[in-house]
Design a protein around this nucleic acid. Structure first.
Lengths: 293, 293
DNA sequence: TCAAAGTGGTAAGGGAAATTTATCATAGGG
DNA sequence: CCCTATGATAAATTTCCCTTACCACTTTGA
């Protein structure tokens, strides 16, 4: 049977030692002197041995001298833990991982992350990018705390918080006949050499679904895809956010008739709540994007 | 300001986790279920974050999962400390050092120590021997907890607990005229070649004081002294306990007229109390020697 | 399908523990 | 010798922990 050493009386002992007396310690602790006397007596009874000499003013017994550094150690550990856990709860420290689709990673996250880390300097963020299936899988398996992607079906295990709509358009080189157009219809694409990519399945279930069968090429890698487009080998469809603005020769033309868009949003596991750090990130993203529009 | 994490609620959290529910934990802890609910709620408020999911039965939040191993660690440290300090108070563990004069070290301590260590298996004893001044000095300086020696004057800084009287006698070789005598008087020594030693000052202030001036030789080292006696170069005075029984050719003859004796006792510092282990040794020695006579 | 037994949460009361107030005995300093 | 410091003690009070009693909800088994 272990005796329960309460933290407070241990603190009292240290205060008496450090301040050289019960009265001095009581002033420091904002307690009265009898409070210390009695609490320390109780502690001594529990241990079965006196800590302070009787009759002498605040002098430690040998046993007390042995105890004091150990009390100090335990209290230090306690305080360190308490501070650490409070810091985490207050989002002053912590760690979170998130998975996002590449377009979000390159167009949205840089700004968001730089604002986030300056607002929560203590929180460490791990950012992983991959296609929508990867993001979904990482979140469901608990590898990451939250994800940003678009979903195609209802997910039993996921909570989805919509962030914005991302319109699908056609991407072509600047010398292509489409390049000067403001909008296009899917019929205009029927005669084109259409390159498929990872986002092509957004067209599934829309009026433009027939275009999916037209793919002569399918390129999942974004760098390869843009190189192919710059080479003038065809056109492709992409959500606007996924359109790589940094290529001067590529143009994005809205696809009207039908309007196709993906709904990009925040996902997390249903049932499990978020860590304080992940909570902070989630609210931060939602608020930032709401403020922007 | 650090929040005070009381040990008990942390135990409650661990019990709920380990037993998979508030009710199971409450049975284990011999508390009622609301007691746990409220204590844990209070802890959560203190930390500023929930440990258990609401609505789910005893499921940890990510924050809770982070906390639990740390709670466990702190509690383990607490329990280990508590057990250790109690063991010391109960004399099941600990350490003590003592200084004794050589005669006590060789004639008294072997038996006492072997009994002591079998009675207090956990206590480690350091035994240091030296002359009376050494013992006195070690005790006063706090290098050792207790000493066994004889004192000549009253000591302001020491507490003296008498153990036994040790009669001074004459030591000579077995072929010496004294060897067959039962007792001697100091006058009988006047014509002898008297060798002085560290215990000779016991004669100071007695009727035999004049013998002190007769020393042709003074040998402090016991081995040298006995070798000199065995060589037949003279006689000496020694307390009985200091007489080395293991030398076959030496004899001890009581010195009557005057009877001179040293009072051997236990010394320790006045004012400072003893460690539990040293206390145990002190009482043990006093009781053992009292039981013997 | 409904009762029974499980989960945990809430409110009010009792009782133990901690703290304060008031007082005392003792020791040291001017 | 008084004054002020020390810490110990007793009784009163406040605080906090725990229990009892009850509720709402879910799961289980007949």
């Amino acid at each position: 049977m272990v005796a329960e050493l309460k933290i407070t009386p241990l603190r009292y002992v240290l205060a008496v030692v450090d301040h050289g007396g019960f009265h001095a310690a009581s002033r420091y602790l904002h307690r009265t002197q009898p409070a210390l006397s009695m609490a320390i007596r109780e502690l001594e009874n529990r241990l079965g041995e006196a800590l302070f000499e009787k009759g002498a003013k605040a002098t430690l017994t040998p046993y007390g001298s042995y105890c004091v550094p150990r009390f100090r150690e335990l209290i230090n550990q306690h305080d360190r833990l308490s501070r650490e856990l409070q810091a985490r709860a207050a989002k002053e420290a912590g760690q979170l991982d998130m998975a996002v689709v590449p377009s979000v990673a390159s167009r949205l996250m840089p700004k968001l992350l730089s604002e986030f880390v300056s607002r929560y300097p203590g929180i460490k963020v791990g950012l992983h990018d991959g296609n929508a299936d990867f993001v979904r899988e990482q979140v469901i398996s608990g590898q990451v705390d939250i994800g940003i992607t678009s979903l195609w079906g209802l997910e039993e295990e996921l909570l989805f918080h919509p962030l914005f709509h991302d319109e699908v358009g056609v991407v072509c080189r600047d010398d292509h006949p489409f390049a000067e157009r403001q909008t296009l219809t899917w019929q205009a694409l029927e005669t084109e050499s259409l390159i498929g990519n990872g986002t092509s399945r957004l067209l599934q279930g829309t009026a433009a679904e027939s275009l999916l069968e037209m793919h002569a090429l399918y390129i999942s890698n974004m760098i390869s895809l843009t190189a192919t487009l710059v080479a003038g080998m065809g056109v492709t469809t992409l959500p606007r956010l996924a359109f790589p603005q940094e290529y001067e020769r590529l143009r994005f033309i809205e696809l009207a008739e039908p309007r196709v868009s993906r709904e990009v949003g925040l996902i997390r596991r249903k049932g499990a709540s978020l860590s304080p750090a992940a909570q902070a990130m989630e609210s931060f993203i939602i608020e930032s994007l709401a403020a922007e529009q």
